[in-house]
Amino acid sequence: MSRTILEVVDLKKHYRQRAGIFAALQWRERFIPAVDGVSFYLKEHETVGLVGESGCGKTTIGRTILRLTPVTSGRIVFDGHDVTAMSTRELRPLRSQMQMIFQDLDAALNPKMRVRDVLREAIITHHRLGDGEVTRRTHELLEQVNLKKSKLSSFPRELSGGEKRRVGIARALAVGAHFIVADEPTSALDVSIQAQVVNLLRDLQRQLGLSYLFISHDLEVVQLVSHKVAVMYLGKIVEMGLANRIARAARHPYTHILWSALVEKKSREAVPVSARTGAWGVFDFERPTSGCRFAPRCAVYEARGRPAVCTDAATEPLLREIGGGHYVACHFPL
């Protein structure tokens, strides 16, 4: 049984918003819940996929784990240490174990530094090594991410998208990290390059025993690379379970919408009306409906004649197990 290396417990992150002069005069502030009570855990050598639309809070979760954003409440336990309670100084050694791959291809790359210096910096940040060792390690990294040696003296602007992504991955590996938060690692890449990167991440996992938190808006990719998938909607996990259960036997109406969106885009036949989404509306963060957040867009809610239990604030659906490690937050799972 592999051990748990990351445990997120009831994580909340509220962004403060000053709502105009009038509200400010009354000392009233509004809070936008970007992440609203999320719990999950990640075992060694495993990949957990976080999937959801933009604004659902998935990126915020990744950022809070690496303490790029402070949390409002909740615990993030990495390898036995509560990340939220540590000082910046205490946190530093932990950074040699967890790293992040940013959505932005240029993120890891200071535009004025050559690839060689980028990797060198990452290698010596946590390990004092001699020049020879650094060179050896650099070449080893290049080999691992499948990058040509000639690229070492390139500046970031001279690299293609795929190469930049590889350097970003190499940099995360350079510190010796075994847990990586991959925030939309493929969305900025071309289709033919996306598959390369996905395969590279999977190979590295097999070779080095890495664990990933794989954040993406693309359910299909997430489902392919992950062991477990958590589907998020407006700051909450609405469904979580093993990847193939999410793929074949999703129970939450929102997960169904995500899948049908993919199918609808592909197939030339019209998708049956029952599977289609309800209202067009885009959720307004500032006025969360009471009860189930998904109700305004939910086809089941409509089909069942708008039951009161869905919109009653007291009965907001909680994530509950429906067997086989499959959790769903819905009163009427499909």
């Binding site: 530093r92 940013f102 890891a108 535009p111 940040t125 510190v175």
Partner: peptide
């Protein structure tokens, strides 16, 4: 606004 400063923090470099 460019992410590389953030990435440097994640790397564990002192401020």
């Amino acid at each position: 606004q460019k992410n590389f400063i953030e990435a440097a923090h994640v790397l564990g470099l002192p401020t």
